[in-house]
Design a protein around this nucleic acid. Sequence first.
DNA 1: AATTGAGTTAAACATTTGATTAAATTAAAC
DNA 2: GTTTAATTTAATCAAATGTTTAACTCAATT
Lengths: 211, 211
Amino acid sequence: MIDDGTPKINKRQQLLETAERLFASEGYDAVTIRDVAKAADMNIAMITYYFGSKEKLFEEIIRTRKPDINEKLIALRDMDITPWEKITQTIDIYIDKLFGRKDFNQVVMREMALKQRPFHVSLVLEMVENNFKIIGDFIREGEQKGVFRYTDVELTTLTLIGSIFQMVNNSSLCGRMLKEEPEAVFSERNKQRLSVHLKSMLQSHLLIKQL
Amino acid sequence: MIDDGTPKINKRQQLLETAERLFASEGYDAVTIRDVAKAADMNIAMITYYFGSKEKLFEEIIRTRKPDINEKLIALRDMDITPWEKITQTIDIYIDKLFGRKDFNQVVMREMALKQRPFHVSLVLEMVENNFKIIGDFIREGEQKGVFRYTDVELTTLTLIGSIFQMVNNSSLCGRMLKEEPEAVFSERNKQRLSVHLKSMLQSHLLIKQL
DNA sequence: AATTGAGTTAAACATTTGATTAAATTAAAC
DNA sequence: GTTTAATTTAATCAAATGTTTAACTCAATT
């Protein structure tokens, strides 16, 4: 047996990772199972063998890679901290989760934008919608406690998440804007920079100045 | 000759519009030229006849539909108005152009996010990047004139445009957030609502209060 | 009336695609 | 060591896809 450095422990896992990466960079429809197999240095039939079909491979990627933002937000909701602290932590949770699984999120965001979505993508869409509702509740809590200005809650949420989505999803455009290599967009430095920016902006937008 | 209400003046134009709509809702790769031909009630060969290929049809959509945001921004740059007025007008220009050509922009945004882009998509990407630079200059002008706070210029631009992109690109998610039908997302009322929100948020973020 | 040429059609072509098969190889169990 | 099951391979299949072809229509021109 030839040991070429890449232990063959888990060909299934290799396929998942390769497919995720290719789907992210070229789009689900543009990637053939032959592309995936070739990039993973395996036979095409391995995909059918492990997953059944291309579609089920995609489904498996979503099932296993879906970030657990929802649980984090629910935990946050029940914590005894100020509404503003909930917002800042929400920002960090989103940045961390979306940057941490950037390939996956690029794939899902692209598929979410399509009209007729496969069932499993609809599930993610529902989760995202649910998360947005929770964030909206954070803002409303601040309004009711008299520490937040009254704003357009839904659109404030949209702006908050949309900025992060945009940076993850269109990294080549952002890379050019930030004068960095496309891959450097996802550096710790830029995660920090985005976090600081969003907190600063939402602070001016939401927080009522203490006189 | 049968006059069925749809004058056959311009089958070429019909193909362009049908293709744009289908590409927007299902994605370029997922749409076959048979789909386009069928939806436009024509023969497949008409696509080759008028455009040469599926790729060139796509190219033609971009060439003819590309919104002229760039010219508007350059005109704005040379106007004798305050930096804040430039920002508010920029917001309205973007909302108007992106909402006005939503199908087109959904297509282009999706293709822009891919790694290896066809040449004509790269051109759009460059135009977008150039527009972002101009908006950044508006903000810097405000900083230098002492009317804007010092902020993260690039990320402020990203947030501004990212919010609009997000609303156009993920209209089904936004529709559910705003409790409207997906198509109603693009109503005049919501354009207005987004405009008000962005101006309000950027005002708190950028403008130094007059004492 | 005959000719021309753009517009249009149905049929076919060569590839590509997702999926399958049956054999071969490897690993595990006994 | 033999048997058994899991993994991997090469070859093949039917359907789908972008493109081409050759014939046909029909209005405008001569």
